[in-house]
Write a protein that binds this DNA or RNA. Structure first.
Ligand SMILES: NC(=O)c1ccc[n+]([C@@H]2O[C@H](COP(=O)([O-])OP(=O)(O)OC[C@H]3O[C@@H](n4cnc5c(N)ncnc54)[C@H](O)[C@@H]3O)[C@@H](O)[C@H]2O)c1
Ligand SMILES: NC(=O)c1ccc[n+]([C@@H]2O[C@H](COP(=O)([O-])OP(=O)(O)OC[C@H]3O[C@@H](n4cnc5c(N)ncnc54)[C@H](O)[C@@H]3O)[C@@H](O)[C@H]2O)c1
Lengths: 217, 217
DNA sequence: GTTTAATTGTTACATTATTCACAATCTATT
DNA sequence: AATAGATTGTGAATAATGTAACAATTAAAC
């Protein structure tokens, strides 16, 4: 993800704020399932590793959502966060690389809750093209531009081996994709201005754990 | 990951430094494959979205690894980073939840490069127990404590549905696990002091992309 | 209706992280 | 061996981020 500041009606803030907001939303939804109706900033941040002041400040960039002396009404705050984050309509995703990880993501049940859905999947393996995985038909790369344009798809997911990731990113952007979640462990050069790219590198995450394990002694 | 500062011989720094070091290492290895022998801080950081000063400062917490006027010898820097990050021996991982994501991770080829390997996998589904996935035999949860203790495994990966994640985390720690990479989209309360936990929440990553997509207009 | 206890929203402050800027050092060239 | 050009390593300056503290507000108790 790029690091530039971001501005709302109220002030400028870092993209980290958005990541935390979506964590709050996730936990609020879990609370709602447990039929919690009102929660204080103190209680909700106990679960996360975040201070209650941080929580209140994050929200303050967008408005006032709590009641002093009382706390936050869970269902109201969920609705407001959904508005802030843009969860008022479905966001379609195009996935490239229907291998082990790509297939897992196609079957991931955590997306719909946030109005995210993978509606198109592409691969260059003839054996996979035409098959449906979790209800999504795998198409050839040649069909990608048309499908992305027709569906107005703006989000792409890269699940191809690292050596192909850069070229797939470029083809995605060429087809109209505006933001990319990349799972291949390589740095991708943004092929155009105004394209957002976020990377998930699992080995790097583990590396950090290893470092801390290692220095305990 | 916890946010506490960390100290080396030289100074204190944030855990973010470690995450960046492992990104540098990843890209250095790619450069090595392309037979690049020497690289400057300017060049290597062009690929990543990081300033060259940041790169040099990150390294400076651990020593001097470059040659002024010249740059960094790729193979030497790789070896030094590996030492810093603890990649001098194999780190074994125990995975719980051999479903779609768990199976993908078992087959992930990006781990060995960093001396990470999943050596044990557990599930509570009778149909899965006994089968081997990517060469790792799936065992029952009951066997977990013994296997983790016998193998001296210190890293755990949680790939079970969210509602079971907390209890699996507790059982892992009970069995001797010291750090956890959690893929379930829930906040896990650390069951003991000195346990490191890192979370990968893919929906949250996408959420951030959606926010930025949404506010372009 | 006043008091009390709770909890927000926000300003001021403290801490942390990043960038700047340049002396130090290296290599190649003349 | 002196000079020029490149690039590191790092303390100081700047910017960003997080925390603390408290006035403002609410609801419930009396
Ligand atoms: N498996 C995991 O758990 C895991 C974890 C983290 C990261 N990753 C990364 O995700 C990517 C995919 O990993 P995987 O384990 O699913 O690999 P995989 O080999 O199982 O799947 C890769 C898929 O991409 C397809 N493909 C290859 N080149 C292509 C191209 N040019 N265009 C379109 N499709 C193409 C292949 O046909 C295959 O279906 C890799 O970059 C890997 O490093 C995987
Ligand atoms: N599929 C994905 O791409 C994806 C992406 C991000 C996060 N996740 C998260 O990863 C986790 C697993 O997702 P999945 O799609 O692989 O689900 P899945 O249903 O395919 O697999 C879950 C596995 O966990 C096992 N399991 C369930 N309860 C267990 C228990 N108490 N002890 C041991 N094993 C147990 C099941 O038998 C199954 O094999 C979920 O929390 C999910 O939200 C998945």
């Amino acid at each position: 993800m790029q690091k530039e500041k971001v501005c709302s009606k109220k002030k400028c803030f870092s993209p980290e704020v958005i990541k935390r907001l979506s964590l709050y939303l996730r936990d609020l939804k879990n609370l709602q399932e447990q039929e919690v109706e009102v929660i204080s900033s103190d209680e909700i941040t106990k679960m996360l590793d975040i201070s209650s002041a941080q929580f209140r400040k994050d929200l303050s960039y967008f408005g006032e959502f709590g009641k002093r002396g009382v706390g936050y009404e869970v269902s109201f705050l969920i609705r407001e966060l959904e508005k802030i984050l843009g969860i008022y309509r479905w966001w379609d995703i195009a996935l490239v690389g229907v291998g082990r990880l790509g297939s897992a993501l196609l079957g991931f049940s955590g997306f719909p809750q946030f109005k995210l859905r993978i509606t198109a999947a592409f691969d260059n393996d003839r054996k996979k093209i035409g098959k449906a995985i979790s209800g999504v038909e795998v198409k050839s790369l040649e069909e990608m531009p048309a499908v992305i344009k027709k569906g107005g798809i703006e989000i792409g997911m890269i699940c191809v081996p690292p050596q192909f990731a850069q070229s797939i990113a470029e083809r995605m952007v060429g087809a109209g994709i505006k933001s990319i979640l990349n799972f291949a462990p390589v740095s991708i050069k943004l092929p155009a201005e105004g394209i957002y790219i976020a990377n998930v590198d699992m080995a790097c995450e583990l590396q950090t754990l290893v470092y801390f394990l290692n220095r305990r002694h």
